[in-house]
Computed example of a mutant assay.
Amino acid sequence: MEEKSVNKTNSNGYTFLFAVIMVLVVASVLAFTATSLQPIQRENVRQEKMQSILATIGVETDRAGAEELYNQYITEAVTLNQKGNVKEDVDAFTVDLAKELKKEPIDQNYPLYIANYEGSKYYIVPLRGNGLWNAIFGYISLKDDVNTIKGATFDHLGETPGLGAEITKEWFRKSFENEKIFDSNGNLIGVSVVKGDIDPSDKGDNKVDAISGATITGDGVSDMISERLQRYLPYFKQQTEIKVATK
């Protein structure tokens, strides 16, 4: 009986030691793999960001071709302060809106991308706001009158599939094309996502049709568009070549 007890004790100890070693080995492998993949993941994110920016002006591409087309069509990338002045020491592409929105507006950096595509000039503004469950974000491009939307892209961190997550769909994004962001009095009000009988051909009503069952996400899209665009008014007012009068 004593010998069996000793063998059982030894067996349990061996099993425990083996389990500890395996946990350490697996953890080390996973940590090494995660560290090794970080540069690839960062590059993928960088290319996908270029894809999203380009998509707002109608340039569709895969990740592999994004950088070449970005360099071809994005002629400027500037960072503005609250007064609309360019900050020479801040790289617009590296500005993290998630961090910026935690600051007071006076301390925020406002990245702006300027594109020239098929002979036309576009201003591309990054967006970020709150959906139902988490952050929503994207880009919106304005034609050279800074009143007419060329295109928009939206994404999210946790909206409901089939409901709020529909903001990523082409049909929703395309509903913003050629909508105006100023009202008839020259006040910037953005574009509202609203329920009701919306005429998609009326591009001067500052409205697009809402997603059924996703009211809060739609309100988040409306809010982030108007809030973010308001921050760029000081810059647009300084541009003498802009055709529309802004208030």
Rank of each mutant, 00 (worst) to 15 (best):
K207L: 13
A152F: 15
I167G: 04
I216W: 02
L229D: 06
K83C: 00
T61E: 06
R46H: 03
Q82N: 05
E76Q: 09
I167L: 05
E159K: 02
G84T: 00
N178R: 06
Y123D: 02
S212E: 04
E67F: 05
D209G: 08
I225L: 15
V221A: 09
K102S: 14
F172T: 07
A55E: 07
G162L: 10
L54R: 06
T79F: 01
K121L: 09
M224R: 03
Q108A: 11
E227C: 08
E68L: 12
N85H: 03
S201P: 01
V45F: 07
I106E: 15
V59D: 06
I21R: 01
G164N: 05
K203M: 02
G65W: 06
V95L: 10
Q41P: 00
A115W: 10
R42Y: 12
A34M: 12
N185A: 07
W171H: 09
G162T: 11
D223N: 15
E100R: 14
E159Q: 07
S222M: 08
I198Q: 06
T79L: 00
D223L: 13
A77E: 13
L80Q: 00
S120N: 14
A115M: 10
F176I: 13
T15G: 06
I53C: 08
W171T: 07
W133R: 03
I114G: 00
L30N: 13
P39W: 01
Q47C: 00
K207Y: 10
A19T: 02
I198F: 06
K49L: 04
T94R: 09
T217F: 06
E76F: 10
R63Y: 08
A55W: 06
Y117V: 11
